[in-house]
Amino acid sequence: MLKNKKQIDEVIYKFIGKKGPLIPLLQEIQSLEGYLSKETMRYVADKSGIHLAKIYGVATFYSMFQLKPQGKHIVRICKGTACHVAGANIISDTLCNELGLKEGEESSEDGLFTVMEVACLGCCGLAPAMMIDKDVHGKLTPEKTRLVIHEIRQAEGASHES
């Protein structure tokens, strides 16, 4: 059963009859649900009359659409050219190590973090950089990277206890 059924319906009705609605429609639904599950995509197909194959095709084509549940905090590691030459690989190794992620894994076991690589955050002057949720952290070192994660964990732990 979908959690946000009512809101999803509203989004679908808003876009029905509009030209080329699929991408903005899926973007809005993803922002409600956090990701696009099979169930959600089926529901959208049934309601909107857009073929499921087309929805799935678009959802898998664009990197912004997520097909798996996401962690509470999204860490975007910049893999732009400037960050690459400034050692972005070391930052991502440090991060995966710190979060206990194995090759191919994206989300930490505690559900706090999902790590993804992005082409460029456009903060090349601050390389190497990463973005956690909406905040950019620049001029990273392995040490600083671990510190940022520690701080978020601590904040989460504190809010958990209280």
């Binding site: 400037a82 460029c120 456009g122």
Partner: peptide
């Protein structure tokens, strides 16, 4: 749709 890594002119 400025996609080149290492580019932020348009932004």
């Amino acid at each position: 749709d400025e996609g080149d890594p290492g580019a932020f002119m348009d932004r």
